[in-house]
């Protein structure tokens, strides 16, 4: 649910990083936080356990500049990936404008990816959204690891849209593909605003 404030000429969009546990959602946010101009970002908030696993969400506000005279802000959220935090994941999807699914490219995580994407579809539905109709991109993370599935295999298993949603290869720990993915979804979100509701 984009929040457009005509009085102060601002537009705020909510982007959610979704994916199985340890796939690199928080790492994506950390990279964006480190590489963004201090004037353009707020604090990175991580509600994590003592072992740095996301407990509720990470949050990073980004102020990117103006589009057509409107100050454009993106609020980036991650969800906790571990299966038993499903109630929290549902809450964070509330009012989402765009979703990035971060998939773990390691062969042994393919089942977890598929399970998480099915979970995403169910949870979106419970908030009244359909994955097929909202701005959505797929990030294949950890491409630098030795035991990865091929891009084609992953597309086959994880793409849900027809024609397929945009796919970005990434290595979030080194920053490869991180901004490309964000830009990809931002473009879809802003383009979505041009449609009438």
């Amino acid at each position: 649910m984009t929040f457009i404030n005509y009085a102060s000429r601002e537009i705020n969009c909510k982007i959610v990083y979704y994916g199985p546990g340890l796939c690199g959602k928080t790492t994506n946010l950390q990279w964006i936080y480190e590489k963004t101009n201090p004037n353009a970002k707020g604090k990175l908030i991580s509600l994590a356990t003592e072992t740095d696993r996301t407990l509720f969400f990470d949050f990073l506000p980004l102020e990117l500049g103006t589009v057509r005279g409107f100050k454009t802000r993106f609020h980036l959220y991650t969800v906790p990936g571990q299966v038993f935090y499903d109630a929290s994941r549902k809450l964070i999807l509330k009012g989402v404008d765009g979703v990035i699914f971060v998939a773990d490219s390691q062969v042994e995580r393919m089942d977890a990816n598929v399970e998480a994407i099915e979970n995403l579809m169910v949870n979106l539905k419970s908030q009244g959204y359909d994955l097929l109709n909202i701005p959505y991109v797929l990030q294949l993370n950890k491409r630098d690891l030795p035991n990865v599935a091929t891009v084609d295999e992953m597309k086959q298993a994880l793409q849900r849209k027809n024609p397929g949603e945009p796919v970005y290869e990434a290595c979030a720990a080194r920053g490869t593909g991180v901004f490309e993915t964000l830009k990809g979804v931002a473009k879809l979100v802003l383009a979505d605003l041009t449609k009438t509701q």
């Binding site: 649910m1 929040f3 457009i4 005509y6 102060s8 009012g95 908030q127 009244g128 959204y129 509701q197």
Partner: peptide, 11 residues
């Protein structure tokens, strides 16, 4: 979209 966007007017 699932819910109407919030639109804030000057007044």
């Amino acid at each position: 979209m699932a819910a109407p966007d919030i639109v804030m007017y000057e007044e």
